[in-house]
């Protein structure tokens, strides 16, 4: 799936830059938690953060980030598809399929859907 740009707004840029400060290996602080909260308050930066966490293998943290995004942006279609994808990556195949079943196909590129279908072991149409 395509990476999401964080350059649309000044706020997104600021939050996106803050994401870079959230080191995967640094000691946890409450200020760091604030940054995580800020990043996931915006759909684009939240998805970007989730993708970065997933790339580091922090899949549960990536899922948590998407949950925060969806709490405030329930129609964040990319976040919902990514959530299904990551659920299947942590071997919660049934949970991923339930999440998938609630999406609308017309919202997504076929290529993206096929990636998620493959991860979740869903047979494709045709």
């Amino acid at each position: 799936m395509n990476s999401v740009s964080c350059k649309r707004t000044a706020q997104a840029i600021a939050i996106g830059c803050a994401i870079a400060l959230i080191s995967p290996l640094s000691a946890e602080t409450f200020e760091e938690l604030d940054l995580l909260s800020d990043a996931s308050a915006d759909e684009e930066t939240g998805i970007q953060l989730a993708q970065e966490q997933a790339a580091r293998g922090e899949l549960l943290e990536a899922l948590a980030t998407l949950e925060r995004v969806l709490a405030t942006e329930p129609k964040a279609h990319d976040a919902r598809l990514l959530q299904a994808y990551y659920l299947c990556m942590v071997d919660d195949i049934r949970g991923g399929k339930v999440a998938l079943s609630k999406l609308k196909k017309k919202r997504y590129e076929e290529e993206d859907l096929n990636v998620v279908y493959a991860q979740c072991g869903v047979e494709q149409e045709g």
């Binding site: 329930p74 998938l100 079943s101 279908y117 047979e123 494709q124 149409e125």
Partner: peptide, 19 residues
Amino acid sequence: QPSVTRANSGNGLVKALAG
């Protein structure tokens, strides 16, 4: 995720998923 549930309307990917 009650807000996500409320955001859903109509059929989802039902027909796109096999079996």
